[in-house]
């Protein structure tokens, strides 16, 4: 399976999907899809990094937690992120995100992501790799 990300349509909000050889890689790609809802990831310099740790009873809730932590960090640090590294350790996630402070003129941010929902939430093997997807409220 090719590594990558995509958005899928939802009437009012937006679906995002990451694909990778492992669940962790799919989580990383989905995070790129999250950034791409707001701005072009290519316009975001991976200058500064933050760490994110979260835990949840299952992998799908852990995926929603990962996205929600990124939403929180984007909102409170006023940053955008364009590079991600995720390590999954059972029910725990250790992540790192690289990015830079939001520059409205350069990044032209379109929407503010409010949070990840559990609609179409799925982390599952597919086509020899993994997908991680959900709908986010924008």
């Amino acid at each position: 399976m090719a590594t990558g990300w995509e958005h899928f349509p939802h009437a009012a909000d937006m679906g995002l999907r990451g694909r990778g050889a492992t669940p962790a890689e799919a989580f990383e790609q989905a995070a790129l899809a999250l950034t791409a809802l707001v701005a072009d990831p290519a316009s975001v310099q991976p200058r500064d990094s933050i760490t994110i740790d979260c835990a949840a009873p299952d992998r799908e809730l852990l995926f929603a937690d990962w996205l929600n932590r990124l939403v929180y960090e984007m909102a409170t640090r006023r940053m955008l992120f364009s590079r991600f590294a995720v390590r999954l350790d059972g029910a725990r996630l250790h992540g790192r995100a690289w990015g830079e402070p939001l520059d409205p003129a350069r990044h032209q941010p379109a929407v503010e992501v409010k949070g990840a929902t559990y609609t179409a939430l799925r982390v599952a093997p597919e086509a020899g790799g993994w997908i991680a997807q959900t709908v986010v409220d924008v």
Binding site: L61, D65, N68, V71, A75, K114, G115, A116, T117, D137
Partner: peptide
């Protein structure tokens, strides 16, 4: 409001 929605959605599921 967004953060409250996010947190309680999870708490209610659990």
């Amino acid at each position: 409001g967004h953060q409250i929605g996010t947190e309680y959605l999870k708490r209610m599921v659990l």
